[in-house]
Nucleic acid binder design. Structure first.
Length: 707
DNA sequence: TGGCAGCGCAC
DNA sequence: GTGCGC
DNA sequence: GCCA
């Protein structure tokens, strides 16, 4: 079944090569554009005291400091921002095109010692979707890392950041945790001018991702309380001084406003789409207290504190570690997070690291311990990020950076579980298995919708041959690179000139077949054939479909079948399978080739290829011979997924036990390193559930083992 | 800085 | 023993 | 790649 993952990997890379290359082929232009427009704006650091007032920043009116001073009142209409520009341009807005120094407060602060955002790098002109627009953020400061990022990106993509309320503002970007009323209340306005577009915090990122101005009216960008007020306000004309005189149609002048629809083009749409759950949808505002909602989720998310973990704590008696730190810290959210990104930056970095395990016990950090909702696929706010990271991981998988690839997969698993879209390094780095480097990549992906490095890597021509070869069954990195260095370039080339093992010959002959996915229905058909043959031979035998099929996948890379029979020793199962079943299936024409088969009396597998009666497509099929005493362990092993298995085995190992496809063993003696000295005694092998229990892992259905 | 699971088959 | 797949 |  792991085979499936590998094939998935191989396949995705294979056909990803071209489609993605095509899609992003303007990247060179981008690079140039970047170079051209290197208007580097240095950002001076603001001084702050540790107990800075912005700790109370989030609710304006209840302590907000930075922007209040000159808040215009209704009687005194605000100046137009272009006037401002002339008069005291340095104090109110941020002209991203300026090449000079900006006022210290004008540019998002550099976060600590990190070298990156010390400067704002303008995006290439073609991508400046916000050019000519004037953004007023709410709250209108860059204290919160996520908001700081939004502001920085908005500037990079052409927007002006209006620091103090003025009439030229085109867009008000409101934090998700706040409502329209907060804005009007803070600005002391009855309503915002009708030509000002009010959107929630997700809007800018999406526009950048899609490289166009999206329709701000879409529900996912609605700010709580906005729509209602506006409608209401249109009818009774009256008051609101500012709006009447500021009717500058500064609207998205001449820009296409596009409603994002499913009909648009390719993969970017499908995958890049933010499900409503990510930002909007709650904009119906049925819940007046969105703030609480957000807060609660924030608390829950990075901590991975779920019901399952509670159970483990109680059952396992590992309560010695109090849940202190995270409870405290997180409950102060978001204020604590906003309080001091500067002075405490260094400290925070360490802290966030040490904090990461987030209470509970050491074992809770194993992926196999963590809940998974099973229905995570498309409806994940981080779907696009995950997709890109997967590509990266796959790339590394083939480049001999095995462990890096593993690290990617762990991080991806982590990211998948987030209920919110992760948009900044800081947020990302807080997740388990996401370190600094991956965090930076995540941030880049979110804002650019891809990873430059990946695009570059793909275009390496020498890679193409390597990747082609790696997709051959029986060929790994070692052989593939040897062939590449010998100058081989194509499969034909190999067939003619390279020395190939038997399996590799089959792998080449059925290159495309083995890369193709097998629809779930076909997995069932293929299995049915085996099962029927088995019934003819011995009705007591069973064939259980394993792998991603058992996890509920819609398609699989290969077919894994456990062959078992009550009270039958491996010996007998092997005899039946190898001497009767397999020959019978060959005779049927169902089986096509043998790739690996048990030789000694210890063996327990048969690997080969098969095909449906009227199909020419060969499928990889594995028969796993399992006595019922080992069935539980085998079920776990062959159900996976990969990460789940690694994780649960590692957990066993840390508990002084050992889990393999045969069973769970205790009292394993290990020498230096983790060298195994004594086998240990069998704790459990026949029951899947019993093994979970023995390890203190809450039961999870196969579909829930997608880490 | 080393560990990251561990096994069986093909060569 | 190494490479490869699971 | 991340983590201890």
């Amino acid at each position: 079944m792991e085979k499936q993952e590998r094939l998935e990997t191989k396949k995705a890379l294979f056909d990803g090569l071209y489609s993605l290359g095509r899609e992003d082929n303007d990247d060179d232009a981008v690079d140039e554009g970047l170079r051209e427009s290197q208007a580097l704006l240095s950002a001076a650091k603001r001084k702050r005291s540790v107990s800075a007032p912005e700790a109370t920043e989030q609710i304006p009116g209840s302590g907000e400091v930075t922007v209040t001073k000159d808040t215009p009142t209704r009687t005194e209409p605000p100046p137009r921002f272009d006037q401002l520009r002339q008069t005291h341009s340095t104090s109110n807005l941020v002209p991203p095109r300026s090449t000079g120094l900006l006022p210290s407060s004008a540019v998002p602060r550099a976060s600590g010692k990190r070298k990156r955002d010390n400067a704002i790098q303008l995006a290439p002109k073609a991508r400046q979707v916000f050019k000519g627009l004037a953004f007023y953020f709410f709250p209108n400061n860059d204290v919160h890392p996520a908001r700081r990022m939004r502001i920085t990106k908005a500037l990079e993509y052409g927007a002006l950041w209006i620091k103090e309320w003025a009439s030229g503002v085109t867009h008000v970007i409101v934090d998700r945790s706040l409502t329209y009323n907060h804005v009007t209340g803070f600005l002391k306005l009855a309503a915002l001018p009708p030509d000002v577009i009010v959107v929630d915090e997700c809007y800018p990122a999406e526009c950048i991702s899609f490289r166009m101005l999206l329709d701000p009216k879409q529900t996912q960008y609605q700010v709580c309380g906005y729509k209602e007020v506006v409608l209401e306000q249109r009818v009774p004309p009256s008051s609101t001084a500012p709006s009447s005189q500021t009717s500058l149609q500064l609207k998205p002048a001449g820009k296409d406003v596009i409603t994002r629809g499913p009909q648009t083009s390719s993969r970017t749409e499908e995958s890049g789409r933010d499900p409503p759950s990510a930002c909007g949808s709650s904009s119906l505002c049925s819940n007046p207290d969105r703030r609480e909602e957000t807060k609660a989720m924030k608390t829950a998310a990075p901590v991975y504190h779920d019901a399952l973990n509670e159970v483990i704590e109680e059952a396992g008696g590992f309560r010695d570690l109090p849940l202190d730190s995270d409870a405290e810290d997180e409950s102060l959210e978001p204020s604590s997070a906003e309080s001091d990104s500067e002075s405490r930056d260094a400290a925070q970095e360490c802290e966030s690291k040490t904090k990461k395990p987030a209470g509970t016990t050491w074992q809770d950090n194993f992926q196999c311990m963590q809940a998974h909702d099973g229905v995570n696929k498309a409806s994940n706010p981080n779907a696009r990020t995950v997709e890109v990271l997967e590509e990266m991981g796959k790339y590394y998988d083939q480049t001999a950076h095995t462990w890096r690839s593993v690290a990617y997969r762990k991080a991806i698993a982590s990211l998948r579980k987030q209920p919110h879209k992760i948009t900044t390094q800081e947020e990302a780095a807080r997740l388990p298995f996401v370190g600094k480097r991956l965090a930076a990549k995540i941030e880049e992906i979110v804002w650019t919708n891809s990873l430059r490095r990946l695009d570059n890597a793909r275009l390496e021509p020498s890679d193409y041959a390597l990747q082609t070869f790696l997709n051959i069954y029986g060929v790994g990195f070692s052989q593939a690179s040897r062939w590449v260095s010998q100058g081989h370039k194509t499969l034909t080339d190999l067939s003619a000139n390279a020395h190939l093992t038997d399996n590799q010959k089959i792998g080449i002959a059925h290159y495309a077949d083995f890369l193709a996915r097998i629809p779930r229905a076909e997995v069932e058909q293929l299995s049915a054939i085996v099962q029927a043959a088995l019934r003819n031979i011995d009705p007591s035998f069973r064939a259980i479909i394993m792998g991603s099929y058992r996890r509920g996948a819609a398609d699989s890379g290969d077919i894994d079948l456990i062959i078992t029979a009550p009270a039958a020793p491996t010996q007998r199962i092997r005899a039946t399978v190898c001497e009767v079943l397999v020959p019978a299936l060959f005779a049927l024409g169902f089986l096509k080739a043998t790739l690996a088969t048990t030789s000694k009396d210890t063996g327990s597998k048969w690997h080969g290829a098969c095909a449906l009666p009227n199909s020419s497509i060969w499928r990889r099929i594995d028969l796993l011979l399992v006595p019922d005493t080992e069935l539980g362990a085998a079920l776990i092993y062959f159900t996976g997924n990969d990460i789940f298995n690694r994780s649960i085995r590692l957990l066993a190992s840390r508990k002084g036990m050992r889990l393999n496809q045969r069973g769970l063993y205790a009292d394993v003696v290990r020498g230096k390193g983790r060298e195994k000295i004594a086998q240990g005694r069998l704790v459990e092998g026949s029951s899947e559930r019993a093994i979970f229990e023995a390890l203190g892992v809450p039961w999870r259905e196969p579909e829930m083992r997608v880490c």
